[in-house]
Amino acid sequence: MDTHTISRLVELASYGVLLVAVAVVAQRNLATSIRLLRLEGFLLAMVSAVIGVHTHEAHLYWVAAITLVVKGLAIPSFFLHVKQRIGLPHDAERSLTVPLGLLLASGLTLVAYHVGRPLALASPWITRDVLASSLGTAFIGLSLMIVCRKALTQMLGFLLMEDGIFLFGITETYGMPLLVEMGIFFDLIVAAGVTGILLLRMGGAFGQVDVDGLSDLRG
């Protein structure tokens, strides 16, 4: 593959990642959102592999494989399982209406473009155009965590944020040192496990996984 193709591929995948983030905001079906995250995992794995081709670094192939397994398969399946165990109704209500959510998402993307622009302009790297969409994805995930009042949706936001940061890291550094990369995956797996258990227990203790019910602690 020549440099141009690689650059196009990575860029295309990064738009896909951003689009998935917007899609998660735009629709209310939790199961679909989790499946969309699976798609995002595949895209990220592809990005790492393609950049691996570009830099001829074997460790990026490892990162791609682990991304495929962890982000593409294991974590989405785990949360689908958790969702079924809690037995949430199919449509997860959000405290945010869809139009408002989309407005927020586009605003955050603009912010990301604004932050990323000087960096992208100064960069000679072929993946420089990805910066804005990666930060945009991370910001959208973050806003889901803060604005939404449903624990499982907040978890979705967390995973989106992780994906955005992963994309940022892989395209701005061509892969962190492998040790650090492993550590980040380890943290992600532990986080998914611990919060999954927490979600199940919250489902048991409150009969609902709704952060609005969590309002004893104030002041």
Partner: peptide, 21 residues
């Protein structure tokens, strides 16, 4: 295993994960 503890833990997770991200 009280309600308040779970609430605190969840809040802790959400905000600290955002921060640490």
């Amino acid at each position: 295993r009280e309600r308040r503890g779970l609430e605190a833990a969840w809040k802790y997770f959400v905000l600290c994960s955002v921060g640490i991200a």
